[in-house]
Amino acid sequence: MAVSQISVFLENKPGHLLHILNIFETSGINVRGFSTADTGDYGIARFVVDKPALALEMLRAQSCAAKESEVLCIRLPDRLGELARVIRIFAAAGINVIYSYTLVSNIIAIHTNNHAATEASLKEHSIELVSQDEISAGA
């Protein structure tokens, strides 16, 4: 049920993120969610896109340091306490969220230390996971 995420190594300088987004735009790749994080001199930008394979190919063709990895995408009802409920499940199951960010609409992407255990915990609590197909189709 995992979704592809494209991560890119970026120097934290004006125009560098734009360069990546230009590549996406000209290749017709729609960004469905993203996050950026940095250490002071370099950073990692992470993207969930509708066409991950194409995105990776286009970035590599431009010699970008890009990598594909997996995240789990969870659809949460926009209600008080929903986020807390999910994180409480992880805490109880001993799952560590390494990073997370929100996508368009009410979807959050999470990367944990154990995706199989995370999926199992979410399933047990009937929390909806969003598939790659849905992301690509514009869930």
């Binding site: 991560s7 994080a37 990692i44 992470r46 590599r60 970008c64 890009a66 990598k67 990895s69």
Partner: peptide, 10 residues
């Protein structure tokens, strides 16, 4: 950094 050495982890 060469692309193959990049990992998605700080």
């Amino acid at each position: 950094l060469q692309p193959e050495a990049f990992s998605d982890s700080f």
